[in-house]
């Protein structure tokens, strides 16, 4: 299908983009790489009156390290972050998960922040941001606001973003010494995950984060469980997740994947822990 009518604004500065958002509110949508939003426009699931293109705002195309956090600007394409020399050293989990985010042909244009803004329950970048206690940097003409990623995503493709706000950046804390692991099951490599699991093993214990099962990524923190105690914890977590049947897999299959690959990633993350 083809998109419905909209005006197109090519913002040259962040202030210009924010001014249009302030004036148009919910009638406006920001487009960056467009790899999620364009599909929504084509299917007319999104029908904004104004589209604000932010990809010619040079200031947003930045990866910075600030006070122990890696700040990824709204213009940073997934391919650029994947090619960043420090990625594996600073953000090992993101380095593991990014190759699963879409395909070579969509990572070349899609942005990290756009994936977070879209908040698909199966998507890898919201999962990583939530698993790593990342933050979403929201900006409007009125104010700046930092929101914890876990609070930012409220459900399937819904977030706490106000109508006049846009994501200016997302930031990931850098933590040394942790072990990380990521695995996902999808019909085709690069398609949305049927189930994706990320594990973090720290000195405090283990964290498991799961996407593709509930209506948003869910995490659980446990002490260093092993054996049947770990099985019981995984089983309880899988059971508590609000899994749904869809065309790709049943809820039961998804829960089983949480038990199986959840255990695999936890064991692997532990082995990688310093």
């Amino acid at each position: 299908m083809k998109p419905a009518l909209f005006d197109y604004v090519r913002a040259e500065t962040l202030d210009e983009a924010l001014a249009v958002l302030a004036a148009e509110g919910s009638d406006a949508r920001v487009i960056a790489g467009g790899q999620s939003l364009m599909a929504m426009l084509n299917m007319r699931l999104a029908r904004p009156k104004v589209l604000i293109d932010i990809m010619r705002i040079d200031d947003l195309d930045r990866i910075d390290e600030e006070r122990g956090r890696i700040v990824v600007g709204a213009g940073v394409r997934q391919a650029k972050l994947l090619a960043w020399d420090n990625l594996a050293a600073k953000l090992p989990l993101v380095a593991l998960a990014l190759p699963w985010t879409g395909h070579e042909q969509t990572r070349s244009r899609g942005t990290v922040c756009g994936s977070v803004a879209h908040a698909d329950p199966s998507a890898e970048m919201p999962l990583c941001l939530i698993a790593l206690d990342g933050q979403v940097h929201l900006r409007s003409a009125r104010r700046r606001r930092l929101v914890a990623a876990a609070e930012y995503v409220t459900g399937m493709m819904s977030t706490t973003r106000q109508d006049d706000e846009m994501i200016e950046a997302v930031s990931f804390p850098v933590r040394d010494g942790n072990g990380y692991s990521f695995r996902e099951v999808a019909r085709r490599h690069g398609d949305f995950a049927i189930t994706a699991c990320a594990a973090i093993a720290s000195a405090d214990g283990i964290r498991l984060a799961v996407a593709g099962v509930a209506d948003k990524p869910e995490t659980r923190d446990w002490p260093d469980l092993a054996g049947s105690a770990l099985d019981d914890a995984l089983n309880a977590f899988a059971y508590e997740l609000d899994a749904r049947d869809d065309i790709h897999a049943t809820a039961r299959y998804r829960r089983d994947l949480v038990r199986q690959i959840g255990r695999d990633v936890i064991m692997e993350a532990r082995r990688c822990r310093a």
Binding site: M1, K2, G34, M38, L51, H103, R109, D191
Partner: peptide, 25 residues
């Protein structure tokens, strides 16, 4: 027309690009 099949893949400024997920403008 939603970026899955890849038939419309072109290159824009050296970046592989789905021509259905990109506006002409």
């Amino acid at each position: 027309e939603h970026g899955i099949c890849g038939a419309c893949t072109v290159s824009v400024d050296g970046m592989l690009t789905r021509a259905c997920l990109t506006l002409a403008v």
